[in-house]
Design a protein around this nucleic acid. Structure first.
Lengths: 338, 338
DNA sequence: TTGTATGCGTTATCAT
DNA sequence: ATGATAACGCATACAA
């Protein structure tokens, strides 16, 4: 491997001069600078980032930890995060926790070992507290994504779940639905709690009663067993005329299960959910959603993280960015049958 | 930051002993090992990966370069690649080239600087040759994904485009279509060439004539301007009764444009494409596809890469993995109108 | 403007 | 079984 010493020898300067040509070109005479640059070119020199990181104590590496990169929400988040990172000269490492605390813990260790400059994290849930405290103890700057964790005070980018619930329930109530159920993720996830809270408040707003039999706590993950949803749907009597899903995965499960049971959507049951399905949902997406600004989640979250890294001031006040949701009406919702 | 020297001091051993406890525990007496481990625990020691990489000349970092992480094909590839990397103790950096050679070049520099152990790359096209030669010159192991590049001999994971084309055209011809058009990506991308070749061969197989007016060279990327497609569609006279799209993005454009022009799919024109739309295409996906095994692309590609890294033998024969495609019949294709 | 000495945190080598 | 020393490639502090 070619090092600054190899360059130095060939250019008849010291290694320090080579280092300066790279980092502070203006502090080197034009003549030697040209000569050194020429030798660097000839010898195909590429600076060793690891050696540089070791002495500078900054790696220009950031970590993005999501629960599943396959979910178009996180896919788009990743795109926004990578763009923002690249714009600021950072590279991105990534991992999938699969909503599992254990996997998350492994990635936390990876974050620590890799000496990345910071991390953008969608925590698996409230159980992430020890993981985040571990990062905090090691002074690794981090920003939370989509979910907050009670007990930890940090920058966070959230979606407005309360407003999203109001949009969803409001739309369904406006169509005339009065029995609106909710399939949710685990209540140990803050977004699920907010969504449930918003659902409850919105029901009240529209003069509907909250009935806990019409609320199911399931899982947000693609790999979660959907059979509890199936049983719940069978159990419901009378059937709700509309179902709100806590995220896109749950909506898919619900629609699939309803159809499998011979129930038409939206003819017999309307379905709407939080989160959108991304740009590849097809030319004519089906599900009515309260869409989150996924790209902004990633982009703004990354910028927040980089800001905090730059302002080494750990005492800088925490920022809490709340991104609005947008109701997008599609074909999975319709007025209830007479 | 806690270093092995801090641990050494507290445990009354040398730094080397601490290093041994971490890397070769069996070569340290049980007693001191326990003592050192206890101190490491107490002081919350985390090894510095960068320092380690510097001396060992291996980073346990791999780079995944795709053209767009938002495309469900690459999303799933990423998931497979990350899984395979994690299974083997590697972490993944990633970047999006957006089908742009310039962006790709920037990531190539990043790959070089970061001293990653290898890279899994979906090249932007044949123009990637210099970029790949640069990696080769610096002895960075790499594996190509989905596309090969003439002039470079390396491991590669490809989809069987010839077979995919046969499946698609065969299906349409079987339905009775005789005027089957093709919207393709840039012919400087190997997969586009193979798909076009397969299309041409399949037409012959099914006794149909190849007419270049019914073939358009557009772009695979989500950001490509779709207006050439629009003009092409308007120009076609008579209209084809079926259109094969070179990938999922093109299929989306075509379907959207046809509908915008008041043309029903599949009633008036059938549409089918290479690549699938992933697990979030909705509960009832619309488009008939020749699906690629995206997860396997990532997983097998990553394993190939890791194999090559381990067998430091650069002369090891290149592997060329060809993954089959699967025809999935859905609602975007139907018999032509009488 | 340029060079020397030193350290970043770790591991390999060789010694004890 | 354990330790002393050098080296990995680079940048900072200081000196010339």
């Amino acid at each position: 491997m070619v090092t600054i010493y190899d360059i130095a020898a060939r250019a008849n300067v010291s290694a320090m001069t080579v280092s300066r040509v790279i980092n502070r070109p203006e502090r080197v005479s034009a003549k030697t600078r040209e000569r050194v640059l020429k030798v660097m070119e000839e010898m195909h020199y590429v600076p060793n980032g690891m050696a540089r990181s070791l002495v500078l104590k900054e790696s220009k590496l950031l970590f993005l930890l999501v629960t599943d990169i396959r979910n178009p929400f996180f896919t788009t988040v990743a795109r926004g995060a990578e763009d923002a990172a690249a714009e600021n000269g950072f590279r991105l490492l990534f991992g999938n926790s699969d909503e599992s605390l254990d996997k998350e813990s492994e990635y936390i260790e990876a974050i620590l070992k890799a000496r990345v400059d910071g991390a953008l994290i969608a925590p698996s849930g409230d159980g992430s507290l020890p993981n985040l405290e571990r990062l905090r103890k090691h002074k690794v700057p981090f920003v939370l994504l989509d979910r907050e964790v009670p007990g930890i005070d940090c920058d966070v980018v959230l979606g407005d779940s309360i407003e999203g619930a109001r949009q969803l329930v409001g739309h369904l109530a406006g169509l005339g639905h009065r029995r609106i159920a909710l399939v949710n993720g685990s209540l140990s996830v803050s977004s699920a709690r907010y969504r449930q809270e918003g659902y409850r408040e919105a029901l009240k707003t529209y003069g509907l009663v909250y009935d806990e039999r019409y609320v199911l706590e399931a899982g947000f993950g693609l790999e979660h067993d959907p059979s509890p949803i199936e049983e719940w749907l069978k159990r419901l009597d009378p059937m709700p005329t509309a179902i709100v899903a806590g995220n896109n995965v749950l909506a898919m499960h619900v629609i699939r299960l309803l159809r499998a049971a011979g129930i038409d959507v939206p003819e017999q049951v309307s379905v709407a959910c939080f989160d959108d399905f991304g740009p590849f949902a097809g030319a004519d997406p089906f599900v009515t959603v309260a869409a989150q600004q996924a790209y902004q989640f990633g982009h703004a979250g990354m910028r927040l993280l980089i800001e905090r890294i730059r302002a080494r001031d750990g005492e800088r006040p925490r920022k809490r960015i709340m991104l609005p949701t947008a109701l997008i009406l599609r074909k999975s919702t319709a007025p209830p049958r007479a």
